[in-house]
Amino acid sequence: MAAVAPGIAAWGLMTGVAMMKSGLSLVESLAMAMLVFAGSSQLAAMPLILAGAPVWVILATGFCVNLRFVVFSLHLRPYMMHLPLWRRMLGGYLTADLTYVLFTKRFPHPVSVASDTMNSGALHAYSMPASGQNSLKNDIAERERQQAYLLGNSLVNWSSWVFPCVSGVLLANFIPQAWGLGFAGILALVGIACSLATSQLRTVSALIAGAAGVVAFALPLRLNILVAIGVAVVVCLSLERFRPLMDTKP
């Protein structure tokens, strides 16, 4: 995560600059940077707020732009459900694109701890063989490692987004957008995408999603991203039938 932080930071900086330039007030831009914590939804909501659009339209726009996070949360569900509700929601709030991608790359499989699936009454130490107890301990330790990784990454990501975004708001008049520093954010995404392309079908998925993202670009509310994910996943699942032995391991 530290390796991509400079890219996120440059991107956050330019988002901060863009918010100030668009005509939001200082307090509004700061609140946006610190609370909303979602670059694409910040950028999409700005023009609507300035145009005085109805609240529900702005919130619905934010929701649609964030729809990909709904897909991510479906994926992350088995990693999270052992936690109390507030921890799940805090974890969710902090899990942005890169945190999700890096997490699922590092931990392709959730841990299913035996006690979750058994009736609680059935879990007595003496009723389990020693090896079972050990593996249960290992499972719980592994689950804690996963959470530590997720939260640690989230905090690095949060600070490398929020602080530069606030700096961008404050320094808006000194940083010309013409420099194109925001491109560093795209390059951070390029690096991560390359690191994910570990199988042929995943590369196919990237190519199809990229093309679909361009073709469907005219859709409102950045729905092109969601369409592209859908098309790429469906195509890859269909291709799996012809290449059953490939991509069994993520």
């Binding site: 991510f72 699922t104 998925s205 999603a209 993202g213 994910i229 790429a232």
Partner: peptide
Amino acid sequence: QYAPIAALSA
């Protein structure tokens, strides 16, 4: 497993 890279690419 194909969703993360698709989202990034899109």
